[in-house]
């Protein structure tokens, strides 16, 4: 090489590295904010398709509908971070909902809600204990809990939906009420999301949950009783599901044993679209919220533009696949 060529060679190399660096920056941006980008694009598309979309009323309505999904998705996120899965949440939701409706007339609202939430905790505790200490597969155990809890909801109600009576009017008021333009359940959801974000970002619990999902053995050999953390995430998930059940009972005025069938799949879809890895260790609360909102907005757009229900299901499935493929591509480029 002549000196001149040498310099040119050096320059072109320098340019290449600079481009490479920018490429990496761009990719880490999309990895971090990829879900946000999709979300913003969707909002823009929705606003374009329907002038009703960006009205305060529609937005608040959308958020209220999504709030139960989001609450459960935060619980599911913790489970997924440990490389687990919780298929029981749709049924646990029903258990929570019917218990609140059943007990409210006699026990009063606070006690009945407390019992409903404790029931959710117990379902999670049962799953978590079996999974963590007997090393049974989460898929199978929570699948079993799904049918056990569903059956229990039917047994508790004798198969009939339980109407909320006047003693529980406070619950209906809460689930249907507003502070200014913001529905109460949306505020509750926001508080839970903030709490989830905080726990995952700033506490040792959150850090260890993620680390366990990446490499449980390394965490265990660091002197941490990993089983306790695994039990805890299922307890959280069960609690969130029961809470969602109470809210739904409040909103509909009925504790129905058949409510929430298939919700677990919707919630898992939200978590996955939010960028969490089902292989554990990766995911965060805010992106999970975006994942749930993306699903909700697509549903909302299709409703506003009169897409028939069955077609909606097909489109939803396609969206999930697209989201996962997108993430896969991003991850490959990253490594």
């Amino acid at each position: 090489m002549t000196p001149l060529q040498n310099v040119q060679h050096f320059r072109s190399n320098a340019i290449k590295t600079e481009r490479h660096r920018q490429g990496v920056k761009f990719l880490s941006f999309t990895r971090r904010y990829g879900t946000l980008v999709i979300f913003v694009l969707l909002v823009a598309a929705a606003a374009y398709i329907s002038t009703d979309f960006l009205t305060l009323r529609n937005v608040m309505n959308l958020l209220r509908q999504a709030s139960t999904t989001i609450i459960m998705a935060i619980g599911m996120l913790f489970v997924v971070l440990t490389r687990g899965i919780d298929l029981s949440i749709g049924s646990v939701l029903a258990v929570g909902g019917v218990i609140a409706a059943l007990l409210a007339p006699e026990w009063g609202l606070p006690a009945s809600i407390a019992v409903a939430l404790v029931a959710g905790l117990i379902c999670g505790l049962a799953c978590g204990t079996l999974i963590a200490y007997l090393r049974l597969p989460p898929f199978v155990i929570t699948l079993a809990m799904m049918t056990v809890a569903r059956g229990s909801a039917f047994i508790l109600t004798g198969g009939q939906p339980i109407m909320l009576n006047d003693a529980a009017s406070g619950l209906s008021a809460f689930a249907g009420g507003y502070i200014g333009p913001v529905p109460y359940p949306v505020l509750l959801m926001a508080a839970i999301v903030l709490l989830g974000t905080f726990v995952l970002m700033f506490t040792s619990f959150g850090r260890l949950v993620k680390a366990i999902g990446s490499n449980e053995e390394a965490v265990r050999l660091s002197g941490i009783r990993t089983q306790r953390y695994i039990v805890a995430v299922y307890v959280i998930s069960g609690f969130m599901a029961a809470l969602a059940g109470v809210l739904i009972t409040g909103r509909t005025g009925v504790g129905a044993p058949n409510v929430g069938v298939g919700f677990e799949l919707q919630v898992i879809a939200a978590v996955v679209i939010g960028g969490a890895s089902l292989m554990g260790g990766r995911g965060d609360a805010l992106n999970t919220v975006l994942g749930a909102l993306i699903l909700a907005i697509i549903g909302n757009i299709m409703n506003l533009s009169n897409v028939p229900g069955y077609t909606q299901q097909v489109i939803m499935g396609a969206v999930i696949v697209a989201a996962v493929i997108l993430q896969k591509i991003q991850n490959q480029k990253m490594s």
Binding site: S214, N215, A218, L221
Partner: peptide, 9 residues
């Protein structure tokens, strides 16, 4: 890799 470190952390 398997037991000493959480490799992606």
């Amino acid at each position: 890799r398997g037991q000493g470190v959480v490799i992606d952390a």
